[in-house]
């Protein structure tokens, strides 16, 4: 290290102040960015809120460019349903992988397998979308969906408050639709959930676990009785982070959800998510049109939902870190 010239540190120094101000400004950029995104999305979408009413926009499922009428219900339901399917698949699998990597897997394989999972989490989502479109969708159409119809068509049809009825596994097995979107999302967030859950499981002190074993508990009992209670909050945090990803994912969903702007009436039904409808409809929406305003309003809704999910995830994860 080179010698530092001696100076009176209490004297106000121009360079020093400038340096601090620069850092402070950078920190402000972060806050301004978030605020600006919220404001811009709202302002650009406010025409849609004003015309259809906030409640009206949220609860109508029409998407009629000819009469210039737009509602957000279909993409909202599509977003939530596809994310729910993704979580239902990826959560158990991801947790299984995390538990496998921390406790069961031979020690020598843990690091390489863990790194492989983390690398898979870095693959761009468009790759998963393409795979879903070219490989999974045809397979769903020819094999899985007919099989589900054959074996599970006895599930009762649910009457719905809104117009369409819910037909579990009936309808044309077109391959692209709600279920396929959920499966592709699940595969995409699986490495992410597995890697974060593993990091959480690893934070349990070995002493706690040894205490459990010393009392004669089996491995599973140590997991459910010691490890999970110790890190429960953070485990939920990891899953909510995954949920946040699934809700806002665009490319993996756009390829396989079918892009039909209507409420899904079953798992096979083509529908739309907020992100997919924005990506798809955007090129045909003229600047200043009501359609574009509706898309921005959808973006605003997605941002608010993601914000709360991600905030909850961070709070849960932070709580775990202090414990």
């Amino acid at each position: 290290m080179t010698a530092v010239p001696f100076e009176n540190s209490r004297k106000l120094h121009l360079g020093e102040s400038l340096f601090k101000i620069l850092l402070y400004v950078a920190a402000c950029v972060v806050l301004v960015t978030l605020a600006a995104i919220l404001i811009i999305l709202f302002v650009s979408g406010k025409d849609a809120f004003a015309r259809f009413g906030i409640v009206g926009f949220l609860t109508t499922d029409q998407w009629d460019p000819v009469r210039d009428l737009y509602g957000a219900a279909a993409p909202i339901v599509g977003t939530l349903a596809s994310a729910a399917i993704a979580l239902a698949i990826a959560w158990p699998l991801g947790f299984g992988i995390a538990y496998f990597l921390t406790e069961i897997c031979p020690r020598r394989l843990r690091a390489p397998l863990g790194i492989a999972i983390e690398l898979l989490a870095a693959i761009p989502s468009i790759v998963y979308g393409m795979w879903g479109f070219f490989i999974l969708a045809p397979f769903m159409s020819t094999s899985i969906e007919p099989w589900l119809t054959e074996n599970f068509s006895w599930l009762p049809v649910l009457p719905n408050d809104m117009n369409p009825l819910w037909f579990w596994f009936q309808g044309a097995p077109v391959g692209v639709g709600l279920l396929t979107a959920g499966v592709v999302l699940a595969i995409m967030i699986l490495p992410f959930i597995a890697a974060t859950s593993r990091d959480v499981l690893l934070t349990t002190p070995q002493l706690l676990k040894d205490g459990g074993y010393a009392m004669g508990a089996t491995r599973w009992e140590v997991l459910t009785g010691v490890v999970i209670p110790a890190v429960r909050g953070s485990l939920f945090g990891a899953v909510f982070l995954g949920l946040g990803r699934a809700l806002g994912e665009t490319m993996a969903v756009t390829f396989v959800i079918g892009n039909a702007n209507r409420l899904p009436d079953g798992f096979f039904a083509p529908t739309a998510s907020i992100a997919s409808i924005v990506a798809n409809t955007f090129p045909e929406a003229d600047a200043g049109s009501m359609k574009l305003a509706a898309l921005f309003a959808l973006g605003f809704i997605l941002f608010v939902v993601s914000f709360f999910v991600l905030a909850l995830a961070r709070l849960l994860l932070r709580q775990g870190r202090m414990a």
């Binding site: 920190a27 972060v30 806050l31 960015t33 978030l34 600006a36 995104i37 811009i40 999305l41 650009s44 982070l241 946040g244 990803r245 809700l247 806002g248 994912e249 665009t250 992100a275 924005v278 990506a279 898309l295 921005f296 973006g299 997605l302 941002f303 993601s306 914000f307 991600l310 905030a311 995830a313 961070r314």
Partner: peptide
């Protein structure tokens, strides 16, 4: 700032696109 940065870290990237489009 830390909290907001963490939110931005995992915010849907499509919304960043919409934002930049508008400005």
């Amino acid at each position: 700032v830390r909290f907001v940065n963490d939110i931005l870290l995992s915010a849907p990237s499509i919304l960043i696109g919409l934002f930049v489009y508008e400005i």
